[in-house]
Design a protein around this nucleic acid. Structure first.
Lengths: 183, 183
DNA sequence: GCGTTCACTCTACAGGCGTTGACCGTATTG
DNA sequence: CAATACGGTCAACGCCTGTAGAGTGAACGC
């Protein structure tokens, strides 16, 4: 790869990292192109040149891998759900946080969030039997959303004080109660 | 009461109603004083005169009654929680929606939301025994938050298609699994 | 009835925003 | 080595925002 191409790729990635961080912390509206540019040590006009618009930058910044992987039985499902709370005690990817931060106030983020959640709901539903599988899947998904929002975005003391393990221990029976349609 | 005082009270209430509606739909940042004024058929400067600033208007608009009432045994608690999803199949007050809509992106709304949630957590914890009562209460509260956000703010089809009764039926055992420390 | 209060409007300002187009210098290409 | 392409900067525009201050006319208190 030519020197110029590398340079460009690095700069672009630096801008994206700054954007993700600021979008995740402040949301779409309060994040300015100027602030992103400054954090990336770059001229604001360059951000526009690379991503076309603020919305384009946001879209590029929140592009994210699908959160859940496979589908198995309900026990496996519940385990995947509690794991998704923070992948192995680490942090959620900042692109996900950025999307969640803005999903209530930025229309495009809301569209993206609905798409991601619908995909997850459909996937969770595959591990559930019974005719209200979709509703149960939706409740499981929004439950995880609520806990994640409370923990990562609102940073409620009561949740931050707890270990991932304790949260998982308490959550598990509740999730099972929803995922297990009696047998 | 004098005619002028009535007139003022009515105008103020009209402004507040418009503000609540717009804040609930658009959030703090996308709601402009000009839009609120127009919706209330009033000059923008009057809004400033009455509420001091946009933030003052927001604070007045989201002032809200405490969501939960008493504390009893766990069954009673669970019932109160599922009822709180939408008071008797009606809508949540718009002031609550306005606060929730902005809680992830507007710092003042976040402070308010944390205060409201912490109060609710403390109250829920009173109905729970055991040394992790506070954590269980926090999880119960954020679970309800997640379902409410998914239903009222993100308007997920999978939840909107369901009746309040079905949601309550599926949620109840899950909430009980968290609220019931074994006996 | 007359001076005052007060609900309400008009006009304007200052600042920050997204966005644009011209420009510069260096790596690339033939 | 000359012509070009391209990463990157600079300065500026137009718009919308929250906000301020002066002004107006009708209800009020005496």
């Amino acid at each position: 790869m030519t020197e110029r191409a590398q340079r460009r790729r690095r700069t672009e990635e630096r801008i994206l990292a700054s954007a993700r961080s600021l979008f995740a912390e402040l949301g779409f509206e309060r994040t300015t192109i100027r602030a992103v540019a400054k954090a990336a040590a770059v001229d604001p006009a360059l951000v526009m040149q690379y991503f076309g618009s603020k919305q384009g930058l946001f879209s590029a910044a929140v592009r994210v891998a699908p959160p859940l992987a496979a589908h198995g039985d309900t026990d496996e499902l519940v385990e995947q759900l509690v794991d998704s709370l923070g992948l192995k005690m680490g942090e959620l990817p900042q692109s996900s946080l950025a999307m969640m931060r803005s999903m209530l106030t930025h229309p495009e983020a809301a569209v993206e969030a609905r798409a991601v959640l619908s995909r997850q709901i459909a996937q969770v539903a595959e591990s559930i039997t019974g005719d209200d599988a979709r509703l149960r899947a939706a409740l499981l998904t929004t439950i995880m959303l609520g806990v994640t929002v409370g923990h990562q975005l609102l940073e409620l003391d009561e949740l931050r004080a707890a270990s991932q393990k304790d949260i998982a221990r308490i959550l598990r029976p509740a999730l099972r109660a929803i995922a297990d349609t009696e047998e």
